[in-house]
Design a protein around this nucleic acid. Structure first.
Length: 414
RNA sequence: GGAGGGAUCGCCUAGUGGUCUAUGGCGCCGCCUUGGAAAGGCGGUUUGCGGGCAACUGCAUCGAGGGUUCGAAUCCCUCUCCCUCCGCCA
C-alpha cells in the first residue's frame, strides 16, 4: 500500500497517477473515510482513557458499586464506538489497498504500446526454426506427456536441453554471485499475507493467478520475489547492513489465466518454469541507482550469452500495482521478427515493504520503511527459447554459447 | 498425524485477575565521578497511531484473533510458531 500521509498531502497527484496506471480509485472518498476514521479513533481513545483512569482509581481498595456501575456504562460505550471504528477501518483499508504504487515521473504514460525503447544491443537476424519444432525434432521436450501427467502447458525437458537449462542456471548463479548477490533457495509456497503483501494476490477475493493449496493458507509462488520479499517481513534492519542483495532460485507457478491469444506456443508461456531472481532491500535514496545496477547486471548477463535485445521502460498503464518503474529486457526473436519479453526489473520503492512491515533503523535512530527491488537474472524456459532461436546451426544441432561450455562438459555443440 | 511443554520491551528473565503506568540482569545511550579510563552512582532504552513549539502527553502493543470481567500478560476458546517424545519419512 501507499503512504496515507503522502496521499493526504498529495491527493491530486495520487489521483492522477492512479488513473495513469489504469486503476479506478476514488482518492477523495478514501480521504473522507480517513477523516471519519481518525475522528472516531480520537473519540474511542478518549473513552478508553476514561476507563483506564477509572481502573487506576479502583486500585488498592475494593471497588464500590458506583464505580462498577460507571465501568459498565463506559464499557458499553467503548464496545459501541469500537464497532463503528472497525467498520471504518475496514472501508479505509480496502480503499487504501486499491491505490497502486506511485510511478516515477520518468515512466512513460499510456498502455503497452507506449512503453519506450531506451536501448538496443545486437542485430536483428531473421529466419530461424521455431524453438518448439527444433526441440521436438531433437526429442528435447515433451508436452504431450506433460499434459498426460499434469495438464496443458506442462512439459518435460529432456536430454541435452535439460542439461543446457542446468548450465544456464549455474552460469547465471556464478554471474550474480560475482555481482554481490547472496544465493538462497526459498520456500515454493507462501501464505496469503505474503502473497497479498507482495501484490500478487488481491486482498479480498480468490481471483488470483496463483495456484492455491486447498484447505491451507498457502499458494505456490509465481516467482521467488514473493518468498524473498517476505524474508525480512516485520524486521527492522540497521542502515549499515543495506543494501541487502539476494538471489533466489525457484520454480515459478502461474495459472496464466487470461493469457489466451498471447504468444503461447511451446516454452514461451507455461504453467511452471525455473527462474533465478535478483532481489534488493535498500535505503529509499539508494533504490533509483540500484534499479539501474540490477538492470545492468541483467544486460551484462545477456550480452555474455550473446542474445540481441533491447531495453524497454514500461509505460504506466502496463505496470503492476507494486512497481514505481519497470524495465523489461526483450530479446530479438528471429522467428517472429520482433522483440519478446525475457526479463523484468522493478523498483517497488516502499510499496511492498510497507505491506510487509520491513523497515530500516537509521544511524541516528529514526525508523522508516525501506525500498525493495527485483529483477530477473534468467527465466529458464524463456532463456532456452532465446538460445535455441539464436544458436541453431544449419546441420540441425545447437551451438553451445561460449560462456556455457564450462557448464556443459565443454561441448561446443549439442 | 498423536501426546505434552512453551512464546513477555535487542538478549536472558520475574510475573495465576486490580500494587503491572510489566520485574530484575545483560547490552546500549546520556549524565555524575576521573587527568583519562575502568569500577561505581543516577537516569534513559519496544513499536505504531495521535496531541503539543517544546518540556511533555493520550491510546494501543506481553505470538495472532476472539471471549469472560468494572478491570486481563494473568482466566476461557480458536489459530500460528517453537521445544520434547511417539508415529512416518527423502
Amino acid at each position: 500500500m501507499v503512504d496515507i500521509q503522502f496521499v493526504r498531502e498529495n491527493a491530486d497527484l495520487v489521483q492522477r497517477k492512479t488513473k495513469e496506471k489504469g486503476y479506478a480509485v476514488d482518492v477523495s472518498k478514501l480521504l473522507e473515510v480517513d477523516v471519519e476514521r481518525r475522528a472516531q479513533l480520537t473519540v474511542t481513545e478518549e473513552l478508553r482513557a476514561r476507563r483506564n483512569a477509572l481502573t487506576a482509581e479502583m486500585k488498592g481498595a475494593r471497588p464500590t458499586e458506583e464505580q462498577i456501575e460507571r465501568g459498565k456504562q463506559l464499557k458499553d460505550e467503548i464496545v459501541q464506538k469500537e464497532a463503528t471504528l472497525s467498520e471504518l477501518e475496514e472501508t479505509y483499508t480496502q480503499l487504501l489497498w486499491q491505490i497502486p504504487n506511485i510511478t516515477f515521473d520518468d515512466v512513460p504514460l499510456g498502455g503497452e504500446e507506449d512503453s519506450v525503447e531506451i536501448k538496443r544491443v545486437g542485430d536483428q537476424p531473421t529466419g530461424a526454426t521455431d524453438h518448439l519444432d527444433f526441440a521436438l525434432a531433437r526429442d528435447w521436450v515433451d508436452f504431450e506427456r506433460g499434459a498426460k501427467v499434469a495438464g496443458q502447458k506442462f512439459y518435460y525437458l529432456k536430454g541435452d536441453l535439460a542439461l543446457l537449462e542446468n548450465a544456464i542456471t549455474q552460469f547465471a548463479l556464478d554471474f550474480v554471485i560475482k555481482k554481490g548477490f547472496s544465493f538462497m533457495t526459498v520456500p515454493h509456497m507462501v501464505n496469503s499475507r505474503t502473497a497479498v503483501g507482495t501484490g500478487f494476490a488481491p486482498r479480498s477475493s480468490d481471483q488470483s493467478d496463483e495456484y492455491a493449496i486447498e484447505g491451507e493458507d498457502l499458494s505456490l509462488i509465481a516467482t521467488a520475489e514473493m518468498s524473498l520479499t517476505g524474508y525480512h517481513a516485520d524486521e527492522i534492519i540497521d542502515e549499515a547492513k543495506l543494501p541487502l542483495l539476494y538471489a533466489g532460485l525457484s520454480p515459478c507457478y502461474r495459472k496464466e489465466a487470461g493469457a489466451a491469444g498471447k504468444h503461447t506456443r511451446g516454452l514461451f508461456r507455461v504453467h511452471q518454469f525455473n527462474k533465478l531472481e535478483m532481489y534488493a532491500f535498500c535505503l529509499p535514496e539508494q533504490s533509483r541507482q540500484l534499479h539501474e545496477m540490477i538492470l545492468n547486471v541483467e544486460e551484462e548477463l545477456w550480452q555474455a550469452l550473446g542474445v540481441p535485445y533491447h531495453v524497454v521502460n514500461i509505460a504506466a498503464g502496463d505496470l503492476g500495482a507494486p512497481a514505481a518503474k519497470k524495465y523489461d529486457i526483450e530479446y530479438w526473436s528471429p522467428v517472429d521478427a520482433k522483440y519478446r519479453e525475457l526479463t523484468s526489473c522493478s523498483n517497488c520503492t516502499d510499496f511492498q515493504a510497507r505491506n510487509l512491515n520491513i523497515r530500516v533503523r537509521r544511524t541516528d535512530g529514526t525508523i522508516e520503511i525501506l525500498h525493495t527491488l527485483n529483477g530477473t537474472a534468467v527465466s529458464l524456459a524463456r532463456a532456452l527459447v532465446a538460445i535455441i532461436e539464436h544458436y541453431q546451426t544449419e546441420g540441425g544441432t545447437l551451438e553451445v554459447p561460449t560462456v556455457l561450455r564450462p557448464y556443459m562438459s565443454n561441448k561446443s555443440q549439442i
